[in-house]
Structures are given as C-alpha cells and as structure tokens.
C-alpha cells in the first residue's frame, strides 16, 4: 500500500453554487496514488460537476483542488498535465478518422511520439478501424477511442465518467482488467464514476458516495483494507444449504445458546432449503461439524456479504433524484 505517499488529488472544501443552488457542498476528498477509486451517487448528486471542476471546465465557488501538487485554479497548465479524462460521453470529431482524432490530442501535449499513438490504439483494440471516420464508429468504439485519448500522455490520474457505458461484456471486462493493471503496475490513480454498482464493486479499491453534493460515505472494497465489509473480526451472515432446514435449525438452536440460555438467532429459508445466521469465520467449520453430527446433509456454505448495491441504497436512503 502506498498510503505513505502524498495523495495525487486533494479536493479541499470545494463548494459550487449556481445561482442560489448549492450543487457541491463543502466536499473534501483525497485520492491516494495507484488506486482505482469509485465515485458513486444518485442522479443529480454532483458527480459530473465534481469531475468538471477537477478538470477545470467549471470554476469552484469556494475551495481548491490540488492535482500532483499544483492547484487547478492557479496553476492550471501544470495541474492538468497529470490528468487524462473522459467527461460524460466521449465526443470526438466525427468528420475525422480515429487516428486524426488521436493525433489532434497528441499534438496538444509535448513529447508524444507516433509510437505512443500506435501503442494506445493497440491497447484500445482499435487497430482495424483506426483509419475510418469516427462517424462510422459504434458507441463502444467511441468509448474505446475516448479511453485511448485519455491515456496518450501517460497521465498519473485517469478520470473516467461512466467508462463502461456502451461497452459489450468482453469490452467491460477488458477495460476493468486494464484499469486494475494500470493502477497496480504504473501507479496510475483511476477515478471512475459509474452507475453500474456491480461493476464498481469488481473494479474499485475504494468508493466515495456522494448525495446532494455532500460526501456521505467512503469505504474500502478490498479485503483487509477497511472495516465496513465483513472483515475477519466481525460476524458476517453465513448461509448453509441443507436437506432439512427446519431440522438443521433445531439442531443448532439446541446446541448453541448464549450464556443466558437464549438460543442462537437464525433464519430459516425453507424455499431455498437453507438457513442463515451470523457467524465468525472460525465458527463456520464448527457449525458445519454440528450439522453433520446431527445427521443433516450440508450441500453448500457461503458468506452473504452485502453487495455494494445494498450498501449504496442503505446510505443514500434509496432516493434517486434529490
């Protein structure tokens, strides 16, 4: 873990007001180097506004954003060099070929060779179509071209707004693997906003959840990283698939009691042929042994950690637009 190094991005008490409406309210967030960082929030919560402020497309009403040690406010040209981004849809010049589009962006940063352009074309898997005009591209191909232009200058911070939008399952998987590799091997910080929660769960090390312009939760999704998701020290929900759920419940409740003699709390899911209870990791094997000794056939044991979606709905209260 590179937690010792300085965060690549520091969002410092940023507020954005448009008219009398406060879009972002005193948001502070640090992005550590080399992590895939998810940015979640319901529609209208201020995700895109935050991203726009990070890349200087919008001004902050208050606060500052420091990228790679330079302020996006006062030292824009220096700060933005660290950033490669797609903001919302990857809109390209449709009347130019994919290659010319990349050339266009390559010219705007010094030191990008033709080889580098060919390299990102390869990475994006666009070799065959790169000399076609962008207007003939599908949404997924434009998305790939968008990622390619963001990677041209090897940025230390990659900001992707809904990057999996329009990609087919193979493309999503490829992108996910690539982003993870980029973070792990090159130390690139990847900042991804997405609505696809299951996707974020697979991709991110950490997620920040914002609602109505405020940061409401920050949690780690990697084992050992944080406390929120079923770590070893906390009991987690465990499901046992058995042949006779009622009998299994009776066996367990007879044997396991709290010191005051109250039987263990468990839930019988007759339909699934399963029982569910809270257990520590060490207890699971013993519970299994108990069940087997009681003549119950156990087919499967699995832990029911809450999905990110459940957690997301829990913290945002399930509201869609505020």
């Amino acid at each position: 873990m590179s937690n010792l190094s300085q965060p690549i991005v520091q969002i410092k008490e940023v507020t954005k007001r448009i008219g009398s409406k406060t879009i972002i309210d005193n948001l502070s967030l640090d992005l550590p180097q080399g992590e895939v960082f998810g940015f979640l929030g319901p529609n209208g919560s201020g995700k895109t506004t935050t991203i726009r402020m990070m890349v200087g497309l919008m001004r902050m009403s208050k606060g500052d954003i420091i990228i790679g040690g330079s302020s996006i406010r006062t030292d824009y040209e220096k700060a933005i060099r660290h950033v490669g981004a797609i903001v919302e849809n990857p809109e390209m010049y449709k009347y130019l070929t994919g290659y010319k589009n990349l050339l266009h962006y390559a010219r705007m940063v010094p030191g990008i060779s033709r080889n580098r352009i060919d390299e990102v074309i390869g990475l994006a898997g666009l070799d065959k179509r790169i000399d076609d005009k962008v207007k003939t591209y599908s949404l997924g191909m434009r998305q790939r071209l968008g990622v390619a232009q963001a990677l041209l200058h090897k940025p230390s911070l990659l900001i992707l707004d809904e990057p999996t939008n329009g990609l087919d399952p193979a493309g999503i998987r490829e992108l996910r693997d690539y982003l993870r590799r980029l973070a792990a091997e090159e130390g690139t910080t990847v900042f991804v906003s997405s609505h696809l929660l299951s996707e974020m769960e697979l991709m991110c090390d950490q997620v920040a959840i914002i609602q109505a312009g405020k940061l409401i939760d920050l949690r780690s999704l990697r084992p050992g990283g944080g406390a929120s998701v079923g770590g070893t020290g906390l009991p987690a929900q465990v499901l046992f698939e058995v042949d006779q759920p009622d009998e299994a419940a009776r066996v367990l409740q007879e044997t396991i009691r709290t010191p005051d003699g109250v039987p263990v709390r468990l839930q019988v899911r007759a339909g699934e042929g399963a029982i569910v209870l809270d257990a520590l990791r060490d207890d699971i094997a013993e519970l299994n042994a108990l069940l087997v000794a009681g003549g119950i056939r156990v087919y499967a044991i699995r832990s029911l950690s809450k999905s990110l979606e459940d957690q997301f709905l829990e913290v945002t209260g399930g509201e869609s637009v505020v």
């Binding site: 933005i80 950033v83 981004a85 797609i86 903001v87 705007m108 232009q149």
Partner: peptide, 13 residues
C-alpha cells in the same frame, strides 16, 4: 458537438 470538453482539458489555457 461536446468536443470542447476534451479540447480544453489539455495543458493550454
């Protein structure tokens, strides 16, 4: 066309 976003996020004022 929305291309202004990608045009402006380069090291140029």
């Amino acid at each position: 066309n929305g291309t202004i976003k990608l045009l402006l996020i380069r090291p140029w004022t």
